[in-house]
Write a protein that binds this DNA or RNA. Structure first.
Lengths: 168, 168
DNA sequence: TAGTGTCAGTTGTAGCAACAACTAAAGCGT
DNA sequence: ACGCTTTAGTTGTTGCTACAACTGACACTA
């Protein structure tokens, strides 16, 4: 592999360097706002948000892992910590004794509602409101193209297909 | 703050979800390829690459920290580990006794050259070659707009301005 | 219904990052 | 020349993530 790969040209390098910078900077910005205002990491917030939108506010660990792009070990640790804080509860899945369901508690639901406005505000300030409407559409298309490579099995697609541009 | 922030509309949410997915997935892809093929994290590779392009292959810790978007504590740990592996050497800056210079060793230079092709190949496969030429240009513009918010002081701009689209 | 392989999840360990506290040198005003 | 502030960097601790090993349950075959 990679024996005969040409280096990036100037335009490609310009785009790549910017993407690297964003990937490096954005998590820190999201994390620090959420930690400061709600005591949550961005990953924890995202997991709680996924639960909050699920039927019964309940998901199997595997589904939650796919929607948040977490390995099962990582998710297991995170959910255990969230459970210790009373934001989530786990119970065995009735249909499959191997599986575990994670359900948002009332406190967890309250936490999501409490954290959401500040988070959305951060997202707007740093990303969405910095772009024109057509740039937003371009970013969606670019994101689809990249994710087809990064996430070919579409494990996270349960999430992003739901927010597709063409509803039907 | 954020008292009256409207929620994202459908187009905005579609773009945001995709960006989150990329930010979550891309570091893992870059790290695992580089770890497997060169025994480096992406951050270590990036730091070595910045040194390799600097005059004398030497940079002050502060400069390197800005170009890689690392806090000084983080950089200090990373450079110490790289030094223990013989890829980098540190020496006091002659002009300013407070400052430390980091210089790429021969082994470090060899390591960068060894690691670069596989890394570029990964970048192409997962990002650059998935995009059309106009999407690459769009991504550059979008990146600039976002980074103006994420990195207003342009600490990382030393890097990305160098690869600007309009050389003169 | 016993055996084998796969799936779902947990637990333990090691390594990296964030944060805070600290040292030391430089700049600056008086 | 003396203090005060800022700058540059290191060190220590805590917490999260990745990886590997493990337990237990389902599925399929004979």
């Amino acid at each position: 592999m990679a024996v005969d790969t040409p280096w990036l040209d100037e335009e490609q390098l310009a785009a790549w360097v910017r993407l690297v910078a964003i990937v490096e900077l954005l998590p820190g910005v999201l994390d620090s706002q959420l930690r400061r205002d709600a005591g949550l990491t961005h990953f924890e917030y995202y997991a709680l948000a996924m639960l909050s939108e699920a039927p019964q506010r309940t998901l199997r660990m595997t589904s939650l892992g796919m929607q948040t792009n977490a390995s099962l070990p990582r998710l297991s640790h995170v959910v255990r910590r969230l459970e210790e804080r009373g934001l989530v509860e786990r119970f065995p899945c009735p249909d499959d004794a191997r599986a575990t369901n994670a359900r948002l508690t009332e406190a967890g639901w309250a936490k999501v509602r409490e954290a959401a406005p500040g988070h959305v505000s951060t997202v707007r300030q740093n990303v969405v409101d910095a772009l024109t409407a057509s740039q937003v559409a371009q970013l969606t298309a670019i994101g689809d193209a990249i994710l087809e490579k990064l996430d070919p099995h579409g494990t996270m697609s349960a999430t992003y297909n739901r927010y597709d541009r063409s509803p039907e």
